[in-house]
Design a protein around this nucleic acid. Structure first.
Length: 130
DNA sequence: GCCAACGTTGGC
DNA sequence: GCCAACGTTGGC
């Protein structure tokens, strides 16, 4: 069982969208980055937990937690790009901002580097925040 | 296989 | 809207 962080722009897909989705579940698709694709295909497994991160908004930060409910599978009509299914677990009472993450002694190393689109990292010890 | 140009992401 | 970072593309 692993932990991840999934980024999304809230005006495209937010934690509220997930919370109000049917069964509180949605597919996480649209990833067009090979490294992330490989994670979706090979490493991210049913039962794993992920932070939901809102990007390109003010303020950016972690807004909640979701669970992977379906292993990586090819997107319909695709031969390259994978998606997983995710289910809402909780929304934090308040957002944990990027600013706070950078200041936090344990969390600061996980996000500081910028990466592409919906990037995912493995934070195991970080789960005390969940 | 190198590397410069280009495109995209995402914080500010 | 700007711009730095970084992934991808494509010419050689």
């Amino acid at each position: 069982m692993s932990y991840w962080l999934f980024k999304s722009e809230p005006n495209v897909f937010s934690i509220d969208d997930l919370m109000h989705a049917k069964q509180q579940t949605s597919c996480w698709d649209g990833v067009r980055n090979y490294q992330v694709r490989n994670m979706l295909r090979d490493q991210i497994k049913k039962g794993d937990l992920a932070f939901f991160y809102h990007s390109s908004c003010s303020p950016p930060g972690i807004v909640g937690v979701m669970r992977i409910v379906k292993d990586g599978y090819l997107e319909p009509q695709q031969s390259t790009w994978y998606s997983v299914d995710v289910q809402f677990v909780q929304k934090f009472p308040r957002l944990l901002s990027l600013d706070e993450i950078k200041k936090h002694i344990t969390l600061k190393k996980m996000l500081v580097a910028r990466k592409g689109n919906r990037f995912s990292i493995t934070p195991v010890t970080q789960e005390e925040w969940g």
